[in-house]
Amino acid sequence: MIKNVKLFSFISVLALVMLLAACGGGDEDGAGSEDNGGDSDGTELGETSLTVPYVAWAGALARTPLVKQVLEEVGYDVNDTQVEAGAMWSSVASGDAAFMTASWLPATHQSYWEQYEDDVEVLGNFVDQAPLALTVPSYMEDVNSIEDLQGNEELGESVDWTITGIDSGAGIMQNTETALEEYDLDNWTLQSSSEAAMLSELQSRMADEEPIIVPLWQPHWAFAELDLKMLEDPLEIYGGDGDEIGAVASTTFAEDSPAAYEVMQRFLEDYDQEMENELLVAINDGASEEDAASQFLEDNPDLLEKWTEGLGE
């Protein structure tokens, strides 16, 4: 009888130990584990403070707030910072920024790529083909190629031998400087300003049907709102059929912020020129960049769910 009591007591204690072990699941101090907002597959948020530099060009102004709002849905704190192209590349390459939303490769940002290619990772493309070129109003019927600028006294004098440009650090400005050399446009100069100032001057000149020459690219709302034509570029200074507009990250982005890396992979699978055009038109119609992004996500809840499902908060 005593043996049976002792055996029953031993079995009871053993069962209790096993039960506690099964229910514990904590660390040595008895505290529950944290997965830092990860999903059931182990994709953790990691570093939640992200810096995302961008340039003040129409496409980047449109898609950067959209990327930011999607990442915030997952649980990230995103500091989107407007910079010039050189600073955008250098901050990502150094790891001070997580990723950028406006690389133009292989032509426009060739010099930056050659300098930083070993220190960055290409995540994918927002737009697969984005042509760049010197651009004029369609009513300038006698100007169809960059070659038509050579020795064109009438045109040169009408625009003070000036091409109205954007910020000096932009790749398209470097392309234009090269074009002036390669096409022997010795009398011509390239004037730096900003995209907003260039567009304002373009619209002002076109309102009076005056000549003007600017560097422009597609996708851009200007081609939907204004009657423009890109000049032929026989030497392909601007990259022929066009650059790829992509996202480029620091080499530690995937390790530092795994869920953000996954969000960007999903985002880039779906984002295309049609989406970008929708954002650009909304902004040009008067919406702020942030409101355009919010409205897009409200109108496309299935995409937001796809981009964030199983990740973060």
Results as ranks from 00 to 15, higher is better:
1 M>Y: 11
4 N>E: 15
7 L>A: 15
14 L>M: 15
16 L>N: 06
16 L>G: 12
16 L>W: 10
16 L>S: 06
25 G>K: 09
29 D>K: 15
30 G>I: 12
43 T>A: 01
45 L>T: 03
48 T>M: 08
50 L>F: 02
56 A>E: 02
58 A>H: 05
59 G>S: 09
59 G>P: 02
62 A>S: 05
65 P>T: 03
66 L>M: 04
70 V>M: 02
72 E>K: 11
79 N>C: 02
85 A>D: 01
93 A>K: 01
102 A>G: 06
104 W>I: 04
105 L>I: 10
107 A>N: 11
110 Q>P: 00
111 S>R: 12
111 S>F: 10
118 D>N: 06
118 D>G: 00
121 E>V: 03
125 N>H: 09
127 V>I: 12
127 V>L: 13
130 A>H: 00
136 V>T: 07
138 S>D: 08
139 Y>S: 04
140 M>W: 10
141 E>I: 09
145 S>Q: 09
147 E>I: 11
148 D>K: 08
148 D>E: 07
149 L>H: 05
154 E>P: 05
154 E>D: 13
155 L>R: 01
163 I>P: 00
166 I>P: 00
169 G>L: 06
170 A>R: 00
172 I>N: 01
174 Q>A: 08
174 Q>V: 09
175 N>G: 03
175 N>Q: 15
177 E>C: 01
178 T>C: 03
178 T>S: 11
181 E>L: 09
182 E>S: 12
182 E>R: 07
182 E>C: 06
183 Y>Q: 09
185 L>Y: 00
189 T>F: 04
191 Q>N: 10
192 S>P: 08
193 S>M: 07
198 M>I: 05
208 D>I: 11
211 P>R: 14
218 Q>C: 09
218 Q>W: 10
219 P>A: 15
223 F>K: 13
224 A>P: 01
224 A>I: 12
226 L>A: 07
233 D>W: 11
234 P>I: 12
236 E>D: 13
240 G>N: 08
241 D>G: 08
243 D>Q: 12
246 G>M: 04
246 G>F: 07
251 T>Q: 09
256 D>E: 14
262 E>C: 05
263 V>W: 05
265 Q>G: 10
269 E>S: 07
270 D>W: 11
273 Q>E: 15
273 Q>T: 14
276 E>T: 08
277 N>V: 11
287 A>T: 11
291 D>C: 07
292 A>Y: 05
293 A>Q: 05
296 F>D: 00
296 F>L: 01
297 L>I: 14
301 P>Y: 13
304 L>W: 13
306 K>D: 02
308 T>I: 12
309 E>S: 08
311 L>M: 01
